[in-house]
């Protein structure tokens, strides 16, 4: 047989040695060993990490919590849930990150058990973990978490419901779309994309005049995605939003909706100073596909910005092809 020892990073790990080093009196040595275990697959490594996550030294606990991200199921979930309560913030943060990697339904019980924990950071991490499991059993707890006092928890709770894409989550998401917190509203309105247009129309119309532009932007995007005919008048109104970003997304939504009524208002924006918006307007006019847009598109075809010109040329082609 060929000589080969010493050349290859041995796939058979020496667990006896690792376990010995994990029991060293020197905390730094233990953390070095924990990191090595973390890079090792297999049930033996999982066992050692679950053991190390209760180490007296925070650096060791952190390495163990990080390493457990590669394992799934009840045992690692329990260990991570415990580490989430760690007095050391870095350990808890590592545990939260690893909890978000869980995929199997078996991992749910320890998460569900913590969903009403007094610390908001714990509740946030738990909601984030549950979201990815897409678990029916998380529906009710998710619903309750939407009433949490902490907005960051409510934002994650939106995720639990939205990932489930369940019709019965709609009333709660609609309600969350008028939450007092901007991030919750933004998440909730975007999350309604799985529902038919009628279900989200009320929320869309409310959010079109939201005080924060990011929510208004999310609302116009949603109106386009679900083809909310009932939002056309509101979208035309959004073409004069104080944020050009919202105007641009509203234009694109009106294009998707083929809203002929929007052509004059869109045409008014063809000379807007920010070229990003001119580009969106030119695209929308093409998507609407009506000859009334041609004069505006001719103007756009001579724009100083090449992207606007390109889109205008494509749009003129689109209008002409729908005509013939």
């Amino acid at each position: 047989m060929m000589k080969q020892s010493g050349f290859f990073d041995e796939p058979q790990v020496d667990f006896v040695d690792l376990e010995r080093r994990l029991a060293s009196f020197d905390a730094a040595e233990r953390s070095v060993a924990a990191r090595e275990v973390a890079e090792t697959p297999g049930p033996e490594a999982e066992r050692l990490l679950i053991h190390a996550i209760a180490d007296s030294d925070a650096a060791v606990r952190r390495e163990a919590a990080l390493g457990l991200e590669q394992f799934d199921g009840l045992a690692p979930a329990e260990a991570l849930a415990q580490a989430l309560l760690d007095e050391n913030a870095a350990v808890a943060e590592a545990a939260a990150a690893s909890l978000a990697e869980l995929k199997s339904p078996e991992a749910a019980p320890p998460l569900l058990a913590l969903i009403k924990h007094p610390r908001a950071e714990v509740r946030i991490a738990v909601c984030r973990g549950l979201r990815n499991l897409r678990l029916e059993a998380a529906f009710q707890p998710g619903l309750e978490a939407l009433g949490d006092a902490d907005a960051r928890v409510r934002r994650e709770a939106v995720g639990i419901l939205a990932y489930l894409k369940a019709t019965k989550a709609l009333p709660a998401l609609v309600k969350a779309a008028s939450d007092e917190n901007v991030e919750v509203r933004r998440a909730a309105i975007s999350a309604l994309a799985f529902a038919p247009a009628e279900a989200s129309l009320g929320s869309v119309l409310t959010c079109l005049s939201d005080p924060h532009w990011l929510v208004r932007e999310a609302a116009v995007v949603l109106a386009g995605r679900v083809k909310a005919e009932g939002a056309i008048a509101g979208l035309i109104n959004s073409l004069s939003d104080e944020f050009w970003q919202v105007r641009g997304k509203a234009a694109l939504a009106l294009g998707t909706l083929k809203a002929v009524a929007a052509i004059p208002a869109l045409g008014n924006l063809i000379g807007f100073p920010i070229s990003n918006l001119r580009k969106d307007v030119a695209a929308a006019l093409g998507d609407i596909g009506h000859p009334d847009a041609l004069p505006f598109l001719e103007t756009a075809a001579g724009d100083i910005d090449p992207d606007v010109r390109k889109i205008a040329r494509r749009s003129i082609q689109l209008v002409e092809s729908t005509r013939s």
């Binding site: 050349f7 990073d9 796939p11 890079e39 090792t40 697959p41 297999g42």
Partner: peptide, 16 residues
């Protein structure tokens, strides 16, 4: 990727 390789018991030789 590194974890996948180790799981599959691929021989790895670094520094060559």
């Amino acid at each position: 990727l590194y974890r996948r390789l180790r799981q599959a018991q691929t021989l790895i030789s670094n520094r060559f």
